[in-house]
């Protein structure tokens, strides 16, 4: 069974999302920052009649730095009936998974391990298969 994946880069590393987790991809033009919000929340963006919460994926992984030219395209995911847009370094492509996800190796590091469903082989090489709910929960949840 080969399923489709959305391949992106977060913090320079390949990160894959299951296509069924992604409801759409939007172009973010304007993000209204939210005062006092945790830093991995970049702000709010309007998508038609909905407000999207924009998640800075790097910060959600507690990765340092920011991408040089972040992609204006952002995958939109829905978790618990709320819509989130994910800021990633780059939205690459939709690719077919090769085989089933395997358990994440221990060398992934704690930040990535927290959001990883596993490793997945794709035609474009291996990637971390990202658990969307864990990603949008931000780095603080892990600490707690």
């Amino acid at each position: 069974m080969s399923s489709l994946l959305l391949l992106t880069r977060i913090g320079g590393r390949p990160a894959a999302f299951r296509a069924e987790d992604i409801s759409s991809i939007v172009e973010l033009t304007e993000i209204a920052p939210v005062p006092r919000a945790p830093n991995f929340i970049a702000g709010l963006a309007g998508l038609r009649s909905r407000a999207l919460t924009v998640i800075d994926s790097r910060k959600a992984l507690a990765l340092p730095g920011s991408p040089e030219a972040p992609d204006v395209r952002a995958p939109v995911v829905e978790v618990g009936s709320h819509a989130y847009a994910l800021l990633v370094d780059r939205v690459d492509d939709v690719v077919a998974a090769v085989g089933e996800p395997t358990l994440p190796p221990a060398t992934l590091g704690p930040a990535w391990a927290r959001v990883a469903r596993g490793m997945i082989e794709t035609a474009a090489g291996p990637a971390v298969l990202v658990d969307v709910a864990a990603l949008i929960a931000g780095p603080h949840r892990a600490a707690a």
């Binding site: 209204a32 939210v34 005062p35």
Partner: peptide
């Protein structure tokens, strides 16, 4: 008004999001 995602609700300052006539989101 639309309900807030948990991460924003936890701030304790906001009671919901809304879109203005021009489509801009506000809290």
């Amino acid at each position: 008004l639309k309900p807030l995602p948990p991460a924003l609700e936890a701030i304790g300052l906001y009671g919901g999001t809304a879109l203005l006539d021009d489509g801009k989101p506000i809290l």
